[in-house]
């Protein structure tokens, strides 16, 4: 779907991409990077809107330097920021965008009706966009990227600004774009945890270079962090410390750092989960100590955590 070969983009003062070589196949691919990691620059180059300083890139087998127009005809793009005028209805807006993609008037209307239905907008599609919730607006943005039935869509931070429920719905929708519609997806995010559940493949870039590219399964194995909060008891006045000792003894990797828990409770322990059995170990350890388990949850990783030295080391160890 997307192939880049030592792609570089240098601005007078910044190097946005530094000899980036990628090979992204069909499916849902997550592109993770902190702000300024080069995600947007990469998307611009892939759409043929900004020339690379050096190196080459091809989308759907078309060279971005010479076939930009053809690429943009077959690719959809959903920007990160708001891009919808409030005074028109979703239908009118998406029909217009379909025509801008080259669809004849009748096809534009039919495809708009279909696409809006697929992203979950029904009667409200005739009302002005100004009155929509953030979740509905995100759906319209997704619809305009899909209306011309592209082979690939580039989604820039599609879950930005959504509440947890909206986030899950959007992620489910993105998954369906591939499974039900057969359209490949490149989705950017700075939240790794979010992409774990949606993507087949995750690419991490930082400072314009490729940090890691692997299937989601490999990735999450090394990066799932468990947060555990326990109560204190008479026998264990500091439940957290007792649990830490027990878990370390059981061979788990427990972070030095703790977080503050709920008022009145202790601290939260953070530990690396290497698989299903980790949960059992924690459960048994808590039960043996006779303390109360307040919570045990998977932490959504912020990308910065992945880059903490020990995490990177853990990844490398795993890779060998």
């Amino acid at each position: 779907m997307i192939a880049t070969e030592s792609l570089s983009k240098r601005f007078p003062r910044v190097t946005a991409l530094d000899r980036l070589s990628l090979d992204i196949g069909p499916g849902v691919t997550g592109l993770v990077g902190a702000n300024g990691a080069g995600k947007s620059t990469l998307i611009k180059i892939l759409l043929g809107l900004s020339p690379a300083t050096e190196g080459r890139a091809a989308v759907l087998g078309l060279d971005v330097a010479t076939k930009g127009g053809e690429i943009r005809e077959r690719v959809g793009y959903m920007p990160e920021h708001d891009c919808l005028p409030p005074d028109v209805s979703a239908t009118e807006f998406v029909v217009h965008m379909a025509r801008m993609s080259g669809l004849p008037p009748t096809a534009a209307r039919e495809r708009t009706a279909d696409t809006l239905r697929h992203v979950g907008l029904y009667e409200e599609r005739y009302r002005p966009i100004g009155g929509y919730s953030t979740g509905m607006k995100q759906r319209v943005k997704l619809a305009q990227a899909l209306v011309h039935d592209p082979q690939l869509v580039l989604l820039d931070e599609p879950t930005n600004g959504l509440d947890p429920v909206g986030r899950d719905e959007m992620l489910g929708l993105i998954r369906r774009v591939h499974t039900d519609f057969g359209i490949s997806v490149l989705v950017t995010s700075h939240l790794l945890g979010e992409l774990e559940r949606t993507c087949d493949h995750v690419v991490v870039i930082d400072g314009g270079t490729l940090l890691r590219s692997s299937s989601t399964k490999d990735f999450t194995q090394t990066t799932t962090t468990l947060a555990v909060e326990v109560t204190d008891s008479d026998t264990h006045p500091d439940g957290t410390a007792a649990l830490r000792a027990a878990l370390v003894a059981a061979g788990l990797q427990v972070h030095e750092r703790t977080e503050d828990g709920l008022p009145g409770a202790g601290h939260i322990l953070l530990l690396e989960a290497t698989g299903e059995e980790t949960y059992d170990v924690v459960r048994d350890a808590v039960a043996d100590l006779g303390i109360g388990l307040v919570r045990m949850e998977q932490r959504r990783h912020h990308i910065a955590e992945v880059f903490r030295p020990e995490a990177v080391q853990a990844m490398e160890v795993q890779a060998r």
């Binding site: 943009r72 891009c83 801008m100």
Partner: peptide, 12 residues
């Protein structure tokens, strides 16, 4: 309303 990028991500 920043709709311009939507145009330029198309053949136009």
């Amino acid at each position: 309303f920043k709709s311009v990028p939507l145009y330029f991500s198309r053949p136009i």
